[in-house]
Design a protein around this nucleic acid. Sequence first.
RNA 1: GGGGUCGUGGUGCAGCUGGUUAGCACAUCGGCCUGUCAAGCCGAAGGUCGCGGGUUCGAGCCCCGUCGGCCCCGCCA
Length: 589
Amino acid sequence: MKWKRTHTCGELSANNIDENVVLMGWVASRRDHGGIIFIDLRDRWGLTQINIRPESSVYEEAKKLRNEWVVAFKGIVESRPDGMTNANLATGEIEVMATELEVLNAALTPPFNIVGDNVASEDLRLKYRYLDLRRQEMQQNLVMRHKVAQLARNYFSENDFLEIETPCLMKSTPEGARDFLVPSRLSRGKFYALPQSPQTYKQLLMIAGFDRYFQIVRCFRDEDLRADRQPEFTQIDVEMSFIHEEDVFAIVEGLMERILRETLDIEIPRPFSRLSYDEAMRTYGTDRPDRRFDLPLVDVSGIVKSSGYGIFVQAVASGKTVAGICAPGCASYSRKQQDDLAAWARQRGAAGLIIVKVGAGTLEGSVAKYFDEQQAAAMIAAFQAREGDLLLLCADERDLMRQVLAELRGEMAKRLGLIDDQKISLTWIVDFPLFEWSQERNRYVALHHPFTSPVAEDVEKMTTDPGTVRARAYDLVLNGLEIAGGSIRISRQDVQQKMFQALKISPQEAEQKFGFLLEALSYGAPPHGGIAFGFDRLIMILAGCQSIRDVIAFPKTASATSLMDGAPSEVDAEQLIELGLQMKERSLL
RNA sequence: GGGGUCGUGGUGCAGCUGGUUAGCACAUCGGCCUGUCAAGCCGAAGGUCGCGGGUUCGAGCCCCGUCGGCCCCGCCA
């Protein structure tokens, strides 16, 4: 490299005219007119047009340049002739008249286009991730990610929080997600686990007196992937002492307010709306409703049980629920469209979908005749339906019904164009139950995690009636995605032990797995609580991406592999020997 | 573990109910062109259709298996 760069490719303007400059970057585009040659030089700050005239001493060499070559140009900033400016480019008023050129590195023709919208398939993008990341869209996503991370750091620091790092090699814990295990060489036969979250550490930091902690931290869960789930992901982890739920809400709302203002220039009303878990489940069928649109679930069991429609009557009699949503203006759906919807619902486990058209104050369609006038009016009132609407009804076990209708609600909103993608909807979900019955494990499991505090007056019921115990937990839902979740923690040892009991964790196991925490709780643990953000998901929404992979520099595929470097891979026999490990054929297990 | 979907020149896609030399766009290479900005025009090269097996006179197209990408269910406190 012969010269020192004087400017980036995004900063030259009319103010720099006549200056001698040195730019370095990648050839984004080459337009060879036979005489004059234009090169778009690209770096992460932008694009600058280089002008090479036939009389230039670098003309012959410039002819050889190809896309993605790395080059340095020395030249003079000139104003573009009238009518030749490019308003789409920050540097569009000027161009650099090349006087000297140094090729810093030639490049193979890339396997896909870096510029333009002919986007390659995702597996190819992942294999050549370093090329994919050159694309403007990906650069913008990672800039957004940095901005929000930086903003969060500043915000928490200004609010007197300390960023403290916690270990990546920790003790494996039962409950929750499957751990990634790391074999120990020094303690042969033993394993570390990578943290699913720094949950216990941040609680120990509270006990240590580091009131107001935060950390932007990598977490690991060895579970199957989704568009919004990676085996390693990042949390903004927060914990505070001597606080109540409201203190957490206030801090988080302040952060979200600032993030939305400074990234999307959106002002959001505070305080954020709140919805109890029960109400969310009743109204939307899910604990993370997308409230950018309405379309509520309406339980009409009470109305239909006295109708003449056998399916409904029997369903209600057998303890099932009949509920539905009202699809506005869909009465014009053809028989086929209706059948398709029913099939769609069956595919998701519902027994079917019963579809009723709404006329002028009446119900129409084959089912309508089973409803008398009064019942029909009650139905229409319940759904606040109008003529031309379509009622989509489901008769099933409550939880299944909710699951199906929640999905149907989202699907119909999409089809009807009810989702305003410019809109931001933030809702706190509160009043979660502490436990959830697990059919599979035949015991209660923690809905949130086993360190979540019960509501004080429910502590006694932890042993007698766990299903009714309320948790001091909360989630923050953004446009139907859970972006943060937290709780006030258990800070008393006796309550923590009750929790383990309720989860059928024996005192021995509790001692073995969580003895350190139980002991710590007995050395003066302050009341404390906090929250953790799914940082990648947050960025995904802010960047308008459909997948978390697009906001992670080097993500894994759906089968948790890295197509670029080939991880995971086999290791040398010697490495296994050192660790005291031996591979077994799957058939021998 | 299960379900769905995709896999065609370097890339993105098309390929009718299975039937002659598998199309298009971009990229690449060459030529022309002094003002373009994802330059333009002309021309060329480049694929046997992820892989294996099967059905058939004949398969990119049908069937079975397998590998890989993506989406979903289970799972993810």
